[in-house]
Design a protein around this nucleic acid. Structure first.
Lengths: 212, 212
DNA sequence: ACTTGACACGAACATGTGTTCGTCCCTATA
DNA sequence: TATAGGGACGAACACATGTTCGTGTCAAGT
């Protein structure tokens, strides 16, 4: 396949740049003006070329109907998850009551391929302290949880131990009438307790660490 | 502040939904048609109300110039990073040669607040094996690296040990004429080697773990 | 020289779209 | 009852924007 002409490349780059700045696509005349092209028909012509090469999609007769393919078709696959509080060994997990929109002070954006196919009922907590290093989770990490009060055996869940008044993140196994909470670190011993002492707060979906 | 009327809420919701589906904002007449409103002026009127309440921004005289505030203004803060290969103890890191656009088989989307202020020269590798558990990094994790061949003392970097033919992820300290590579796990001993034996491949920026 | 194809021009043309205006229908309030 | 304000109508109006068409240029083949 022949390479794109300089002008075609410039047009493509401009559209991408424009999209980063504006939230809506450029018009043909925006492109024309920016690149100093003398006629809209020239832009139209080159846009058609770009479309044939599947680099963009055009929606006919719709103003600003240019979509950039290739790069992150974006938005669709990205989920915003509210960081509603902290998780620490000695504190109960804040309940994701009204995780409506925007009322969380902080948000985490992440691709949906990371968090799986459950965009709903997700919330995030910032880890405080080193109580979960055995689960390879560090102080300052952000854990993404799926709000649920039950789970399958073997899943890693955030549980509140009523008696000990303690939050912990462990693999959950129901064994007869007792519960085994298995640390991720295989060299550490599991905790055994009764089923009515544990309150499952959510299932671990993802961990995100940001290095300063 | 008074609540939004049912119609205003519907308009706001529709714009958000439209944006999810189309990559470009709706026109006033799109809104009119969808909600069965008889006149464009009604839409205009309600749009003005929404704008006064800072729920949207309108760009005057620009077609489809509606921007939804509040929710993830999206795109802007999200970065797509190519996963260009694997990182394992015994393998050299694949060089991010042509991390152009889209030629990577896999991409990771993540908010720019997580990866810091360096959107460029970022690449990602999937961790293979348990050689980095001491850095709280598990098998299957994705590490985000900033491509660079030098670093400051104390930064965590991916280095290739030429002599040992081995990749490792450690804190880097240049001490006189030798290099100390300090595992994140404080209970483990550091590695000492000569400066010309280490080739810095990139600086650790973030770690993302996806639980099945 | 002749043809062909990739590109570029410029000028209309036809809609797409935002804006404005006068009017009307309610409900709450004085 | 009179009045004011939120909200809705419908019809223009004006310009923003996509589309089309006839021409021109230039380099590569033939």
């Amino acid at each position: 396949m022949k390479a794109l002409s300089r002008r075609q490349q410039a047009i493509y780059d401009f559209i991408a740049r424009f999209l980063d700045d504006n939230d809506y696509p450029p018009t043909i005349r925006d492109i024309q003006r920016e690149l100093g092209i003398s006629s809209t028909s020239v832009v139209d012509y080159n846009l058609k070329v770009l479309e044939e090469r599947a680099m963009i999609r055009r929606n006919r007769n719709i103003s600003r109907g240019i979509e950039v393919l290739g790069r992150h078709t974006s938005r669709r696959n990205v989920i915003s998850i509210p960081v509603i509080g902290q998780i620490a060994a000695g504190l109960p997990i804040p309940v994701p009551d009204d995780l409506a929109l925007g009322d969380a002070t902080d948000m985490v954006e992440i691709g949906s391929d990371i968090v799986g196919n459950a965009p709903r009922d997700l919330f995030a907590l910032r880890v405080k302290g080193h109580s979960m290093v055995d689960a390879l989770i560090n102080d300052g990490d952000i854990v993404l949880l799926h709000a649920q009060e039950t789970c399958e055996n073997g899943e890693t869940v955030a549980v509140w131990l009523k008696e000990q008044k303690e939050t912990t993140l462990k693999r959950f196994y129901l064994e007869g009438d007792r519960v085994r909470l298995q640390p991720a670190n295989v060299t550490m011993d599991p905790i055994y307790t009764t089923a009515d002492n544990v309150a499952i707060q959510g299932k671990l979906v993802s961990v995100v660490r940001s290095i300063v």
